[in-house]
Amino acid sequence: MGTKAFWLATTAAVLIVFAASRLVTNDYVFFAGYVVLQYVVLATAWNILGGYAGYINFGTSGFVGIGAYSTVVLHKLVGPPIPVLILVGGIVSGAIGLGMGYLTLRLRGVYFGIATLAMAIVVQTLVTNWDFVGGSRGVYIIRPAHVPFIGGYIQYLFLVMLVLAAVAVAAARTIERSVFGFGLAAIRDDEQAAEVSGVPTLRLKLIAISVSCGLMGMAGAPLPYYVTYLDPASAFNLGYTANTIAMPLIGGTASWVGPVIGAIGLATIQQVSTVTISSALNLLIVGVLLLICVVVAPNGIVGLVRGKRRRAGRGG
């Protein structure tokens, strides 16, 4: 897909989803759609560091929580509109990601993963003991019932997340095709070799983790308005971490398409099964799908399709 075609397709997708949503009268569709889009942002963000550079981040829940609680703080102090909250959530989360990266990105493989997981738990503990944001009791956010021109508040949140998803995917695709993304691919393949080739590995990793964590914070920032009651256990839910790792792996980590496919597919299945079967089944579904994926499509759905195409091309 050329760059022009990509922008056209992305804009068209956003407009079509928006137009289609105008026809929907059932609010539940927006609640479910919001979650799916939120996972598109999270999976895409995770993949910038995890897929492109090969550093597995187990701290997604931490950065979602940071984004969410930066909104809580701002809401209590000023109460700015959602786009501002998203921006601030992204900046705070990205800055903390940068700091964490500076401390941990010299670690490789599983050690980096452990450090990120620990970071998420430390932040959760801090927030749980911080009375200003409600501590372990949690905090209520009262949102307006209506938004001019758009209608209900959940419709507005859905739209905001839709735009954010488009921005995240566009960012990931731009990175993937830039010299920067090329350097990340080298780090993933062999970091020492990348270093002696003159790739400034630490700097690239720090940029990647800032962008990745920033986007995660942005995805988390509207969360208090979505749930209206936020407590640390739900804001820092490890389900975010598990899902965000599973989605790119199922979709395919090598390109921006993979996380999008994985997120839309997996999150939709989860939303549907929550209603039709049981909400406790969610993570079990993730586990089973991940297992199937490891056996059938080790390079994700994108890898599977590409492999088939290549073989078909050779045969014909």
Binding site: V179, F182, G183, A185, A186, D189, D190, Q192, A193, A194, V196, S197, G198, V199
Partner: peptide, 26 residues
Amino acid sequence: VALVPEGRRLFPKLTVEENLYLGAYR
């Protein structure tokens, strides 16, 4: 100053051309 590392340390999943491009990253 350039190093040809021990055991070659190529980027195995990148093409020959991409390997060379990476040599010219600076």
